[in-house]
Design a protein around this nucleic acid. Structure first.
Lengths: 211, 211
DNA sequence: CAAGATTTTAAATGTTTGTTTAAAAAAACT
DNA sequence: AGTTTTTTTAAACAAACATTTAAAATCTTG
C-alpha cells in the first residue's frame, strides 16, 4: 500500500521508464516503438513497463500529453505577453526555433500521432482554450483597424510564423540528406533562415509604415 | 515464363496490389500498415503480396520510389521552365498546393519514411541531380546581381516557398482538430493562405523595385 | 482437348508483438 | 528479529505479424 522510499537513486524506476519511452516514442513513433525497445533503453525488465503503466497505450498517452503540454505552454505564454506585435512575432519565432532546435523530432511526433488518433488532441481542451483566446487576436485586429499592419487574421499570421519555422525541422531528415549537410551545416542554415523569416514576416506585415 | 494475358479486367492483380499498398502506406506509414491491411484493401489473398513482390519491404520500396518521383518531377519541371522569377514562384507554389490538396498525406509520408531510413533518399541520385542543378539557381543569382531582388540564396527561397505550402498539409490533422474545422473550411483557409504566401514572398523578394 | 505454365487459395510456418503469471528479491513495517 | 508489502525477475502467454508451402484453380499453348 505504501510507496517505496527510494531515497538516493538518481531516478525512480517509473521516471526512468518515462524518460526512455519519451526518447523511443519520439524517435520511432507509437507504431515503430516496441515495449522491448523501451525496456532496453530504460535498462529494466520488460514486465515493469506494464507494472507501472498498465499498457503500452497508457504509457504512450502519458508521454504524449506531457510532450504536447510542453510544446504549447511556451507558445501560449508568449502569445499573451504584454508586448508589441513586432516584438511578439520575433519572440514567438525565436522561441519555437530554440525549442525545435533542442528537440527536432517534437513537431513530427505530435503531428503524426494526432493524425493516427485525432481524438487525442480533441480531449486536451485545456490547450484549446488557451489557443482560442490568446491576446494575439485582439492585438492583430486593433493594429489592422489602425492601419499599422496589412489586413490579416491572426490565424493566417500564426500559420505564417509557425510554418516557416516548424517545417525547417519537420523536413530536416530530407534536407540534410538531399543537400549532403552535416549537423553543423544544417544548424547554420536553419539559424540564417530563421532570421530571414523574422525579417520577411515583419516587413510584409508592417509594409505600410515603412521608413 | 509468359506473362498472363489478362485482357479485360480493369486492373492487373499486380497493379491492384500497388494501388492498395499506395493507399494503405500513405495513410498508416510502413510501421502502421500490415500485409493484411493491404491484401484486404486490394481484395486479394495475403499470399499474393509476396508472390508479386517478394516482401513487404520490397513492395514498400516500389511504392515509395514511385511516389517520391511523382512528388519531385512536377517541381523540377517548373524549376527549369524558361519563365520569369516572379512567374516561377507563383507557379511553383500553385503546383505544390494543387498536388498536396489532392494528396494531403504525400508530404508526411515522404518525410517520415526518409527519417525512418535516410539511405533510401540517398539512393535516388536521379532526383538529387535534378534538384542540385536547377535553373532557379542561376536565375536568382542573376537577379540578385542586377539588384532586382533582395540578396538571397536559391536554397533559402526554395525553403520559404515550400515551407509555407507544405506545412499547411503536414499540420492539417492538428489544424482541423484544434480549430474544429470541416473539410470545406480547411480547403478555403488553405486556399486563402496560399494566395497570401504568394503575395508575401514576391513582395518581400521584389521589395526594392516597388511601384 | 490435354499438357504445361501461371495464378490464386487455404493453411501452416516461425517470429515478434503486447501482456500476464508466479516466484524471487528487496524494502517497509511492527 | 519476523511478517507483510512492494518491486523486480524469468518465463510463458496468446494474438498478430510477415512469410512460406503445397495444392487447387485458371489460363496458355501446342
Amino acid at each position: 500500500m505504501k510507496k517505496a522510499m527510494n531515497c538516493f537513486p538518481s531516478q525512480s524506476t517509473e521516471e526512468r521508464i518515462k524518460e526512455a519511452a519519451r526518447q523511443v516514442f519520439l524517435e520511432k513513433g507509437f507504431d515503430g516503438a516496441t515495449s522491448r525497445d523501451i525496456a532496453e533503453a530504460a535498462g529494466i525488465n520488460i514486465a515493469l513497463t506494464n507494472y507501472y503503466f498498465r499498457s503500452k497505450e497508457k504509457l504512450f498517452v502519458t508521454i504524449f500529453e506531457e510532450i504536447t503540454e510542453f510544446f504549447f505552454t511556451g507558445m501560449s505564454a508568449i502569445l499573451n505577453k504584454p508586448i508589441s506585435l513586432r516584438e511578439k512575432i520575433a519572440e514567438l519565432i525565436e522561441h519555437d526555433f530554440r525549442m525545435l532546435r533542442e528537440n527536432p523530432r517534437l513537431i513530427n511526433f505530435i503531428l503524426n500521432e494526432v493524425h493516427r488518433n485525432p481524438e487525442r488532441m480533441g480531449k486536451m481542451i485545456g490547450l484549446q482554450k488557451v489557443l482560442h483566446h490568446s491576446m494575439l487576436d485582439e492585438q492583430v485586429q486593433r493594429e489592422v483597424r489602425q492601419g499599422t499592419i496589412r489586413p490579416i487574421s491572426s490565424m493566417h499570421l500564426m500559420t505564417m510564423m509557425v510554418s516557416n519555422i516548424h517545417f525547417l525541422f519537420v523536413s530536416k531528415p530530407m534536407t540534410t540528406q538531399i543537400w549532403n549537410m552535416t549537423e553543423d551545416e544544417f544548424t547554420k542554415f536553419a539559424d540564417a533562415h530563421k532570421n530571414l523569416v523574422i525579417d520577411m514576416v515583419t516587413n510584409y506585415l508592417f509594409e505600410s509604415e515603412k521608413a
